[in-house]
């Protein structure tokens, strides 16, 4: 954690420099980024998060940590494949409707072609034990990537006892077999209620709460980074 924090800080300064240098995202640029990323999203969209982070933040400098974490949370909360949703959301954020179209095409076309190609190969050759063993190994590689994604999202999600408790409670409910939809709706409502009451309490003590003094620039980052 300690070294992680330092790493982010180091990236932070690099990123700001990069942002100044790199031109605003183009249609072709967004398309290419997602074309490149989509074929490695084995095991569902979450596995793509680390590569997406590397591409969007380190390579392209199009987004910062918080913007990306926000987009990815939204993508996971919307119905459908997380990877495809993330592509649409990030594309829209970068370049409006056309950005979303570019990212969507980039995310869908390669995987579509690969699935059908693999299915045709599979139908002809059947399955060898070696191929199965290799795929078994890949599953654990994917588990690693998804764990990493959980850490990254978790770091921006959990900043006090309440959010930590909410995360553990949600995990317990999932293990008990509750459908994810209920948890997403429930979590959103509980979060709104808790944050609202807390803000009200804070306002009683300090009229000039950080909430009201926030309108500095277009940065849409959260107020809950304390």
């Amino acid at each position: 954690m300690e070294t992680d924090g330092k790493r982010t800080d180091g990236n932070g300064t690099n990123r700001k420099e990069a942002e100044r240098k790199i031109a605003s995202p183009t249609f072709a640029g967004i398309l290419w980024s997602f074309l490149k990323l989509a074929p490695i999203s084995f095991g569902g969209g979450y596995a793509i998060f680390p590569a997406l982070e590397k591409e969007m933040i380190a390579n392209r400098g199009w987004m910062d940590d918080r913007e990306l974490a926000e987009s990815l949370s939204l993508a996971a909360a919307a119905p459908g494949g997380v990877g495809v949703n993330a592509a649409f959301l990030i594309g829209y954020r970068l370049k409006g409707i056309w950005g979303a179209v570019a990212a969507g095409i980039g995310a869908i076309v390669p995987t579509f072609a690969i699935v059908l190609g693999l299915f045709l190969i599979y139908q002809r050759t059947g399955d060898s034990p070696k191929v199965r063993a290799a795929l078994g190994g890949v599953t654990w590689g994917i588990v690693t990537l998804i764990l990493f994604a959980a850490l990254r999202i978790g770091r921006s999600a959990i900043h006090d006892k309440f959010t930590a408790g909410l995360m553990l409670a949600a995990l317990a409910c999932l293990l008990a077999g509750l459908p994810p939809l209920y948890l997403i709706v429930g979590g959103a409502l509980i979060g709104i209620a808790a944050a609202w009451t807390r803000d009200r309490k804070r306002d009683d003590h300090k009229p000039a709460s950080p909430m009201t003094g926030r309108a500095v620039g277009g940065d849409t980052s959260y107020m809950y980074y304390i």
């Binding site: 959010t163 997403i184 979590g187 944050a195």
Partner: peptide, 23 residues
């Protein structure tokens, strides 16, 4: 901000659950 305050922990749990299911 308030919406994300509750949504993000749940999403973190969902991702951890995906790991669990896969494993």
């Amino acid at each position: 901000d308030r919406l994300f305050y509750g949504l993000q922990p749940v999403v973190t749990a969902l991702i951890l659950f995906a790991v669990y299911r896969l494993g």
